[in-house]
Nucleic acid binder design. Structure first.
Length: 614
DNA sequence: TTAGGGTTAG
């Protein structure tokens, strides 16, 4: 309404004659018309109004006016559907092409950046720009490179990199930093990012953050932390965004001491505790084993987003504190925060890790009925996991069979059913599904490992050997189990049978001593866990070489009595290590916190927080 | 008159 009134007013104010549109640009009347259009566009907020203004622009003969066109492009970014309209106006399929310059294109890119699926459009108009011989300027490339980053297309990125060099913008800090970022977002691009980073003569906190974030994203967390240390040596001060990436890397490593140091560093340096920084800090504390601190930080936040809530819910879930996680989810809903699909994954996994089957079923229904969130494969995965872990294997199978056709069960879902069948003794079923999986996905190592473990449990050693031979033949290698531990701010990694450590002899002596002590307390080795056709004594020996036991022995040697021990495993904890760790916690009076691939186990006085349910 | 790096997920 308002726009229509304004248009009438403007039309009356400017007496349109056939002669004035031909007036030179600086004529007062023309400037009045131009200014009128600009202010109309300023107050425009609907597509209808925009189309009316468009007609007005044409009527006034301002379709070639750079100021008006640019304003038109930027206005269209403020509400949905308008950008498409604007781009058809700016690039008509027939008729003469209006005026274009780099600034106009940049304005369009900025408008695109605020919408979804903006990347292909940005690249399309970047190509248009080149086709019309409009030279990009230094402001153009960050938009274009970000579009490449969003698409994760390395080849495309490289070709744009070529243009950056050609137009001479490689030395511009913004452009170069976005190049680093772009390469980090493309699969296999970190090496290219490093090259750009390495060639940069001036690196500011953004350059460092982009590279640190890149390493953190690809899971090279140790390198990310290393780079952060180097950044400090070089005298570049990290800001809150740098800290978010370092915290993510620290969370991945499970390095609590480092995490605590990062927290105090933020305090000491007075780094702004943005909402994102707090979220990253919550996630870090939860993943480093101190979920209470994560909750404390969460409670202390003034403004919490869905990410803050989800981070702490997922944190509690990982630690097996499912009831608290569920209560927090309910509290969030009560406070009027709309849960999203990730929040539902969090709450469903909380139910799964704590055996809250009925609660999980309720949330799964609630998600679609109350929030219209269509369950994705991940949500189905959570449900299958929930049912399988609870031993409801048949129900899990029925659930998979009832899945809508558009959400086909993936290998992960089948694997969680196999694991459950394996644990609950449904070996025939597990064997059938594993064979099918190998047929469908012949290069995935865990399918072979599952089948091989089933044969071992059935004591079919010849079959088991055949599976291993098949793996060798295809060149498939099992991911070796490893355990990390942080001692005196240093990370140490152990693999099974590791002899590379300086204290090698003492560690193995300690492992032997541990074995004797826990046996005296009632521990019986779970030799069926050793899936080799060897005699019982050798099997026991193989169990004692597990990386987890080596790391615990090293911790017992290197830390004062009573100190908690925290370790991080790359795979799920095996049954025997789980049992042995319970005894170690009792005999040596140590709290032992183990993070495995799925969750945390807090061992204290012979018991585990997972209540042997994992 | 325009531009750069970040957090939650089976």
């Amino acid at each position: 309404m308002q726009i229509t009134k304004l248009l009438c007013f403007a039309a009356n104010a400017i007496t349109i004659t056939s002669s004035w549109v031909q007036l030179p640009p600086h004529t007062t009347k023309r400037r009045v018309a131009e200014q009128t259009c600009l202010s109309l566009l300023n107050s425009c907020n609907t597509l209808t109004a925009l189309t009316q203004i468009h007609a007005f622009i044409l009527k006034l003969g301002l379709h070639n006016n750079p100021l008006v066109l640019t304003k038109f492009a930027s206005t269209s970014s403020h509400f949905p559907d308008a950008i498409h309209y604007a781009s058809t106006f700016l690039f008509p399929s027939n008729g003469p092409l209006p005026f274009h310059d780099a600034f106009l294109f940049n304005t369009l890119f900025r408008a695109f950046a605020q919408t979804h699926d903006s990347k292909p459009k940005t690249l399309h108009f970047y190509n248009t720009m080149l086709r019309f011989d409009v030279s990009p300027n230094k402001f153009t490339y960050p938009f274009v490179l970000k579009a490449c980053a969003g698409l994760g297309n390395l080849r495309l990125g490289e070709s744009v990199h070529g243009s950056v060099a050609k137009f001479g913008f490689y030395e511009d800090a913004h452009v170069r930093n976005t190049l680093v970022h772009m390469y980090c977002c493309c699969e296999g691009g970190v090496g290219f990012a490093w090259k750009v980073f390495d060639e940069s003569s001036k690196r500011d906190s953004v350059t460092w953050s982009a590279m640190i974030g890149g390493y953190a994203r690809v899971g090279d967390s140790a390198r990310a932390v290393g780079l952060f240390r180097e950044m400090q040596v070089m005298g570049v001060f990290p800001d809150e965004i740098t800290m978010v990436s370092v915290l993510a890397a620290c969370a991945d490593l499970g390095a609590l001491e480092l995490g605590k140091w990062l927290e105090s560093y933020v305090e000491k340096r007075n780094i702004t505790k943005s909402e994102e920084l707090c979220n990253a800090m919550i996630d870090m504390f939860a993943k480093c084993g101190d979920v209470d601190r994560a909750v404390e930080l969460f409670r202390g936040m003034e403004v919490r987003s869905i990410v803050s809530w989800t981070s702490v819910i997922v944190g509690l879930a990982m630690h097996g504190r499912g009831l608290e996680a569920v209560m927090l989810f309910d509290e969030m809903v009560e406070q009027g925060i709309q849960p999203d699909d990730v929040a539902f994954i969090g709450v469903l996994s909380a139910c799964s890790h704590s055996g809250l089957v009925d609660k999980g079923r309720c949330y799964f229904d609630f998600m679609e009925k109350s929030y219209g969130i269509v369950p994705k494969i991940e949500h189905y995965g959570c449900m299958v996991d929930l049912l399988s872990r609870a031993g409801l294997v048949n129900e899990a199978l029925e659930f998979v069979q009832a899945m809508p056709v558009e959400v086909k069960p993936n290998q992960i879902i089948w694997r969680s059913i196999i694991t459950a069948c394996h644990a609950r003794g449904h070996l025939k079923l597990a064997k059938g599904i594993s064979k099918e999986l190998i047929r469908k996905e012949p290069m995935h190592e865990s399918n072979y490992v599952l089948l091989s473990n089933i044969y071992a449990k059935l004591r079919r050693w010849e079959k088991k050997t055949k599976v291993r031979e098949m793996m060798d033949m295809k060149g498939i290698k099992k991911v070796p189990g490893s355990t990390m531990i942080e001692i005196n701010n240093e990370m140490y990694e152990f693999v099974a049978g590791d002899k590379s450590h300086d204290l090698n002899k003492q560690i193995y002596d300690m492992v032997d001593e541990m074995g004797r002590e826990i046996k005296r307390a009632g521990y019986v080795p779970t030799t069926s866990q050793v899936l080799l056709d060897i005699d019982e004594e050798d099997k026991e020996d193989a169990l004692y070489r597990h990386s987890e036991k080596l790391a615990i022995a090293f911790a017992l040697l290197s830390t004062p009595p009573g100190t908690p021990i925290r370790i991080v495993k790359n795979l799920r904890v095996c049954e025997d290590c789980h049992c042995a760790t319970k005894f170690i916690s009792k005999v040596y009076k140590r709290d032992i916190v183990v993070r495995d691939r799925n969750r945390f186990h807090h061992f204290r006085n012979g018991l585990c927080s997972c209540r042997d349910f994992w």
